[in-house]
């Protein structure tokens, strides 16, 4: 049973990097790809229908950590205190940029929130890189340091590549000036998820020692497993409804 929940946790974390990775990557590339406000609108509109379905994977990671690996949750989050705080603040600032950028007219308002999307995405990528480096180091050293910064830049580069590929797939010959197939998007998703997969594999024994007792895991399985077809179905539906053939540019976007 603990192996099953370890698998669920790893899948959710890897899925978060593979999916939310392109949102964060496009946020990072927003000043580069979106030199005009029209291009920025197109890029944000391209990722907008996916963001809510993507970012929620991390909420699920934290929930599973608390429910199935409670001893690890306290240790890991407290051990990474400054990074978890910057991660949350960056996430909030990025999301605020998305939700608020079109709520008032005027180019200054929208440009300011576009910078918030960039700053939040940069904070997310760097916090993640540093957090993964600290976890890989066994939470022993200081949470913030030079090796962590290097890992942060690496994660940022992987996310940017994934975001660029996503934009080329959803908006062919759009702001990136090129087009990519779904297969290329799958490859870039693997690149974005690789750091998370490596850390998940490395920490598996440490996590298993901290699993909740069989009684708790049994209850979680009985209640959650019946919902998995619905959860998978809803995620698949998002991709079917908002894929490249859905004419991303024709409708005004809410974000």
């Amino acid at each position: 049973m603990d192996i099953l929940w370890l698998g669920v946790l790893a899948l959710l974390l890897i899925g978060y990097f593979a999916l939310e990775g392109f949102d964060i990557g496009l946020g990072l590339l927003l000043p580069v790809l979106g030199r005009t406000s029209r291009d920025r609108d197109r890029i944000v509109a391209a990722m907008a229908p996916f963001v809510l379905a993507n970012e929620v994977w991390l909420v699920a990671v934290a929930g599973v950590l608390f429910g199935a690996f409670p001893a690890a949750e306290g240790e890991a989050l407290f051990g990474l205190y400054p990074l978890v705080v910057t991660l949350l603040l960056s996430w909030i600032v990025r999301d605020a940029g998305l939700w608020f950028r079109r709520r008032l007219d005027g180019s200054a308002w929208r440009a300011a929130w576009d910078w918030a999307i960039f700053a939040g995405s940069a904070g997310l990528a760097l916090s993640w890189g540093m957090a993964l480096a600290a976890i890989a180091g066994g939470l022993s050293g200081p949470a913030v340091g030079l090796p962590g910064l290097g890992a942060g830049l690496l994660v940022a580069a992987a996310f940017a590549f994934h975001g660029w590929t996503f934009a080329s797939w959803r908006l062919p010959d759009g702001p990136t000036g090129s087009r990519r197939t779904g297969r290329a998007l799958l490859v870039s998703a693997c690149v974005a998820a690789a750091p998370a997969a490596a850390v998940a594999a490395a920490t598996a024994p440490w996590l298993l020692e901290r699993a909740a007792p069989a009684g708790t895991l049994g209850v979680l399985s009985v209640i959650i497993l019946p919902f998995t077809p619905l959860m998978v179905g809803a995620q698949v539906w998002v991709w079917r409804a908002f894929g490249p053939r859905s004419a991303a540019d024709r409708m005004p976007s809410f974000f």
Binding site: A60, G63, V64, F66, G67, E73, T216, L220, I224
Partner: peptide, 9 residues
């Protein structure tokens, strides 16, 4: 943790 995990998932 159980009800919180169920809530998120």
């Amino acid at each position: 943790g159980a009800p919180l995990a169920i809530e998120t998932l």
